[in-house]
Write a protein that binds this DNA or RNA. Sequence first.
DNA 1: ATGCACCCTGACATCATGGCAAAGTCAAGG
DNA 2: CCTTGACTTTGCCATGATGTCAGGGTGCAT
Lengths: 138, 138
Amino acid sequence: MTIGQASARSGVSQRMIRHYERIGLIPPPLRRDSGYRNYDERDLHRLRFIANARDLGFSVAEIGTLLDLWANRGRASAEVKGLALDHIKALDDKIGKLQAMRATLNNLAARCHGDERPDCPILNELAECPSSGDPASR
Amino acid sequence: MTIGQASARSGVSQRMIRHYERIGLIPPPLRRDSGYRNYDERDLHRLRFIANARDLGFSVAEIGTLLDLWANRGRASAEVKGLALDHIKALDDKIGKLQAMRATLNNLAARCHGDERPDCPILNELAECPSSGDPASR
DNA sequence: ATGCACCCTGACATCATGGCAAAGTCAAGG
DNA sequence: CCTTGACTTTGCCATGATGTCAGGGTGCAT
């Protein structure tokens, strides 16, 4: 199948398929005489794996490791689980930071009357030195 | 003050100060005869504003708008609040996506025994077609 | 005047992705 | 057989926010 078909059936854009090939995440497929990349079901399966892992937020490097583990029939599942748990921790970190931002901003927004008058606690707070101002929001 | 001092006192790296200047977020400062950038308290104040906004996750484009509003003494606070609320919504979006990833992954990890045996539901699920497999986790 | 810490510019890297352009290929219909 | 339109190829540029390195100039204290 051509790259367009592989893309449509895997959910990975053509652009990214070529990209993954160039960075070595997937092996270069066979080429037709015309030079067109020719993918088989095995390649497709791998692309779907990549799409799923990417949707879970794994980085390309992590996906590479997961692919290796996937290909290695003798791997210990503990290794995979370790990766997954690490990634969960990273997600929790990100979520926590975003929630902290949200809380601070929500706090500021609540204190801003939001009418046609120019006085605005949001801007006032942004203009403060980080150490001064509202310690509770940090 | 030099860029190093401005950086230390604002929490914005020298690299980013120069960057913000180049993209027009901050005006080019006066230069000494040597060519060194020379910042005053006003510049410092602006840099601190930028640092605070950045810490709340605003993009450079949004920070530009906020700076304009900050400089415009007659602005309506509603405008600022609107920006803030939009940003909160964007944060909620991101948080929601990350939480969905986390939930799915956590689900998978819980089903993986994580020992020395090779069988692993995490890899199995990643290898599935997105439409098949475990609809509950989506 | 010598050395060290600082500053200058410019370029390249990240990470995952999009877009564009010029050129070749394929399949179907006239 | 030839045209047309859809597809593929490669390569380069761009994003956003930031880091790093290199090569060269500056300023100050000893």
